[in-house]
Write a protein that binds this DNA or RNA. Structure first.
Lengths: 263, 263
DNA sequence: CATAGCGCAATCGTATACGATTCGAGATAT
DNA sequence: ATATCTCGAATCGTATACGATTGCGCTATG
């Protein structure tokens, strides 16, 4: 319909937020359609923008603290400010951006305290999710997970940090979907997203990012249907992740801004 | 302040959705300001509408399934559709309303499955929160909690079901605030809100609603600084709550609509 | 030279307008 | 009498317009 009208003077490169419009759906097992929704937005342009920004942030293509002007976002995606605004609000609710009245939206910059809280929450929730996943995983799920790990390896091999991190987080989300717990899955989604911000700010370990063998171990536990093992492995994995953060340091000074996104 | 410009032809009484504009702040202990925010909206009219609808839903003044027309909500609160829309979106993000494209917003009607998931999540999260609260609670917190229990009793004595339920839920939120865990507190807030919808749909126990002595027992555990006890009591409390639901029954047919809110 | 006052540009908040979609009532044919 | 089709009202989705607020740079002054 209307969006195709590229003729408009609005050129401004589309910033190519990431890959094609490929939506992640598909592969997942029984998860179902509704379970995969990141935001509680009705399908539409706003959701598309939301998903794109979400990915861009998760892949560290936009730095924490960057300003997300409504005008800019709108023009960038060829939509009006109204739509951009809705997308930013959705992002704000998921904790990825903060909004200040009459000031605008900014990519969130979780402080040390919040970072600790996020990982404490993950340490509480995800082991249980892993346990449930072990109880629910079917052959199709295992196949999908194996393919996912493969993709993770490829990203690491290609030294594509952003994508590797993104996939690593997505692994946790897939587990939640397999566990067939939509409520917990929603929480995991939000926590993983915020974790990405935290990692962007406080990560200190330079070596193999999240490519720890924990994911493989989890796969094994799931295959064996060993819920207790999955629980324990996940707990250790989260603790390990947190240990890779430097939570004694003060948040690095606010980085420049939107221009840090490649402009 | 600014909206005083009543000159506009828009009269429509503000509908006084519930009680005075009393915001719940204050009493809470160290929680702080930011912790108490229900929605990630910048202060403004939208937040006010959001909070009002939120309370109305939590007090069962609006039934699950009721339609929330943008026009209607807007005129009801003397705001334009734009603002109403933002408020409804915020509510949708917190899971209290569902939005269907080109159809509108409706108060959510969690199905049996979702109800179970919500209480499973609460059974996982809240015991831990209670344990943390026991470790953090100070004298001021205890005083506030005692006052809160007092209010709960009063509401029950006055046979004000809606308010009693609302206060009962708020008790759980206060615990999360005392625990000084904003992330978990946010989750508890959302879960409590959804629980209210679930109770509206599936509650079967007619006797003393949530006025079980569990809250008193929790108070005692907190006072003694006994985290383990608080954990266990809370777990039992959640299980008890869930046992009061009839999750074998099919959701009652959708009630009329917004007019059920007293207008 | 440092500081306070002032004006302007940028951005957000809100309202309104118009096109698109959906659902339901009424008419018509079988 | 029932089922189907068509048309219309209601409601949402999106765009645009205007007023308000904020922050910043410039100028004037002690």
């Amino acid at each position: 319909m209307p969006p195709s009208t590229p003729g408009a003077p609005r050129q401004s490169r589309p910033v190519r937020p990431a890959a094609p419009p490929a939506d992640r759906g598909g592969a997942g097992g029984r998860g179902g359609a509704a379970a995969g929704r990141l935001f509680s937005l009705p399908p539409g342009r706003a959701l598309e923008i939301c998903a794109n920004l979400h990915r861009a942030i998760l892949e560290h293509r936009i730095a924490p603290g960057a300003k997300l002007s409504e005008d800019e976002v709108g023009e960038l995606f060829g939509a009006s400010r109204t739509v951009a605004r809705a997308a930013l609000h959705a992002l704000a609710h998921s904790g990825l951006v903060t909004m200040e009245r009459n000031r605008g939206a900014f990519v969130a910059r979780p402080d040390k305290r919040e970072a600790n809280e996020v990982f404490e929450a993950r340490a509480l929730i995800e082991p249980r999710v892993a346990r449930m996943a072990a109880a629910h995983a079917g052959p199709a799920d295992m196949t999908a997970l194996r393919a996912h790990l493969e993709a993770e390896h490829e990203a690491v091999a290609a030294d594509d940090k952003g994508r590797a991190l993104s996939l690593s987080g997505e692994f946790h989300i897939r587990l939640a979907d397999i566990a067939d717990q939509q409520v917990l899955a929603g929480m995991v989604r939000a926590l993983v997203a915020r974790s990405s911000l935290i990692i962007a700010l406080y990560w200190r370990r330079v070596d193999a990012t999240c490519e720890s063998h924990a994911h493989h171990a989890l796969l094994d536990a799931l295959e064996a249907g060993d819920g207790a093992a999955a629980d324990e492995i996940m707990r250790g994995h989260i603790v390990d992740l947190r240990s890779g953060l430097d939570l004694g340091e003060r948040p690095p000074a606010a980085t420049s801004l939107a221009e840090a996104l490649g402009r």
